[in-house]
Structure formats: C-alpha cells, structure tokens
Design a protein around this nucleic acid. Structure first.
Length: 374
RNA sequence: CACCGCGCUACCCG
C-alpha cells in the first residue's frame, strides 16, 4: 500500500491526475485512509472540487485529514458556510482542523469566537497564532494584535507578513513601511503586501517605486500594479503594465476590466466582458454590475445581477448601492432583507439610503440596530 | 505516505 500511495502521488506530481486515478481505481479495495486522503487532495489541488467531493462522499472512513482537505478547499474558495458544515461533522478533529476553523473565524471577522477557540485548543502551532492575529487585523484591533504577536513563541516570516498586512489594511502606511524595512527577512509575499499598503493608501508613486525595486515579481505583484492604476482610472498605465507582464490570468483580466469601467469606458468594458464571458468569475460580473449601478444604469445593473451564475455578498452590496443612489429606497430595503447574509458594508449602504431619503428618525433607528459600527 | 496560518482583482465610508 505504501508503494501504491507513493505511485499515486508521483503521477499527480508529474501532472497526470488521470494516471493517479488509474492506480487508485485498480484493486480499489487495497486503498487505505492515506490513499483516499491523497486522492481527494489531488483533485482539490487540481481545482476539480466536484470530483473531490464525489470521492469524499463515498469514502469508507472519514479521516480528519480527508475532512480537513475538503474544509480547506471550501474555505479557500470562500464558501465558508459549507466549510463550517464539514468542520462540525468531523468526528475526531485534529490540530489542523482547529487551525482551519480558527482561520474561518478570522476571515468572517468573528474575533470572540476565534479567541475562545484559541484558548480551548490543546496546544498551538505558529499557524494557530497567525490565524488569530489575522482575526484581529480584520477587525482593526491593533492593540490585541500587538499583544498576541509579542507573545508568540517565534516570529517566522509568515507571522511578520501577517503583522505587516494588518498595518497595511488599517491604512497606516508609515508603520507598515517601518515594519517592512526592519523585519528580519523579506520574501515575495512581504514585498507584495507592502505594495498593497501603498495602493491602499492611494500612494501611486510609492507603489510604482516599490514595484521597480522588487527583487522578483510574480503574477500577484503584477496584478497588484495593474489594480493600482485601474482604481484611479489611469487606463493607459493599466494597459501598459498589463501588456508588459509575462503572463496574464483571470485576476489580471478583472483588474484590466476595472481599468475600463473606472475610466468611464463602459462600452469598451462591455465588449471585453462579452468576449471573455466564458472566463468571467464573480469578480468580473460584479465589476460590471457595480459600474452600471454607479453610473445610474440601474436596469442594466439588475440585468447583470439576474444573469450572473453566483451572487457573493459583494454583488448584493453592489446592487443595493445602485438602488440606494438612484432613489429606489424600497428596492434597497427589499434586497437588504432578502440577501442571505449581511456585513458592515451592507448596513452602511442602507444607512446612507435612508439618509438620502431624508428620513431622520428612520436613520437613527436603523443606526441603533446595527450589529457593529465603524 | 495525506490536511492547516501571510500577499494581487469586484461593493459602502475613509
């Protein structure tokens, strides 16, 4: 079985998932829990979530590792509901399972839950600490974050990067730069995080200077640079960077699409979008939706919204914004109640819808109902 | 022999 499992992995590493599967299917009764976990992980890595799920559904014994693999994959694509559903069903969660749940809490801004889980864990790895720190970063609790960072047993580069990102996201460019230049080592992630810090602060020249200083660049870095120009509507530079990058992917395409919409070229954006619709993801759809909504084309926005294959909370928020800014308070309210879940942005949008409608008592009452206030 | 933590693109305010 050992040999068999190594063979499965070897085929996968050489890029042949189907050969790996052949070994797995041949005398299938010989497969042990490792074989199943390995095969599921291969499909998950290859992005074939359906096949991974199909195997997971007929696994003879649901090991924690197999569950973790599915859980991690769903968390990675942002389906936190399904990830949590799997987490709840793990019979004997291991430390990795707990770390995964911790990072789900972090990514949904559930700090109290994260902290409670952290202290209930039998022991901690660096991943546990970093996941918790990320939770505090998400909600801007910098003091707590500093405290936990200071108390972790070691600071590896991932922990430093998480600290750097926390400062970047909380719009503190000076302190981010301070951390960046005094951290013990920097890798590609550190550089891109710092680039995002400049972008977040709207410091385009700083972003450009840092980008040129980078010792190496991957597509994440290039895409970030396209995004910097796109967000401020500098279409020429977006295009230039996009053409210069060694290879473009979906994210590059979405960043470029944003360049067109932000420059006010809705027609060109539509043409581009139609031509590459087969490759469009929820980001591309929402970019178009938000562009129409922001420019007062509310029925076109609604058409996009109805047509898109999957609605994220951001796409819901975008259509709410369209209604709110075009005087359709009723529609905004309806959407707000119908959407599967709401975040702080959703509440802010509705709050401003009430303000625009000039209904002061309602604004006041709604404000008081808000679960959190920034 | 399998699983986990940090960076890029879309929504409000900044």
């Amino acid at each position: 079985v050992l040999l068999r499992n190594s063979l499965i992995q070897m085929y996968a590493r050489c890029g042949s998932v189907s050969d790996a599967r052949k070994v797995f299917d041949d005398q299938a009764l010989q497969n042990n829990i490792y074989s199943w976990a390995i095969m599921i992980s291969i499909y998950a890595r290859a992005g074939d979530l359906d096949e991974a799920q199909a195997l997971f559904d007929r696994i003879p014994l649901r090991s924690a590792v197999a569950c973790n693999t599915m859980l991690a994959k769903y968390a990675q694509i942002g389906d936190l509901e399904r990830a949590m559903a799997i987490a709840r069903e793990i019979e004997a969660p291991n430390l990795v399972s707990l770390n995964l749940v911790l990072s789900i809490y972090a990514r949904s801004g559930r700090c109290e839950a994260a902290e409670r889980l952290f202290f209930a864990m039998p022991y901690w790895t660096l991943a546990s600490w970093t996941a918790l720190i990320t939770a505090f970063a998400y909600t801007g609790q910098m003091l707590k974050l500093q405290h936990f960072f200071a108390n972790m047993p070691q600071h590896d580069i991932v922990a430093w990067n998480a600290l750097l990102d926390a400062h970047a996201q909380n719009a503190n460019l000076e302190s981010a730069a301070g951390i960046f230049w005094r951290m013990p080592q920097r890798n590609l992630v550190s550089w891109t995080t710092m680039l995002a810090a400049y972008a977040q602060a709207g410091n385009i020249l700083g972003a450009k200077a840092l980008f040129e200083k980078m010792p190496e660049r991957d597509s994440v870095a290039w895409n970030a640079m396209v995004g910097v120009y796109s967000r401020c509507g500098n279409l020429e530079n977006s295009k230039r960077v996009f053409d210069e990058m060694p290879e473009q992917n979906n994210v590059s395409f979405n960043a470029m699409l944003l360049g067109y919409t932000q420059a006010g070229h809705l027609e060109s954006a539509s043409v581009l979008f139609e031509r590459f619709q087969y490759a469009a993801d929820v980001f591309s759809w929402t970019t178009m939706l938000a562009a129409f909504a922001a420019n007062g084309y509310i029925s076109e926005a609604k058409r996009i919204f109805d047509k898109m294959p999957h609605h994220s909370i951001v796409s819901w928020n975008s259509i709410l914004t369209g209604y709110s800014q075009n005087g359709h308070l009723e529609h905004a309210m309806e959407g707000f109640h119908v959407m599967p879940r709401r975040n702080l942005v959703s509440w802010n949008i509705l709050l401003s819808a009430y303000s625009l409608a000039g209904n002061v008592p309602l604004v006041r009452r709604f404000f008081e109902q808000m679960p959190e206030k920034s």
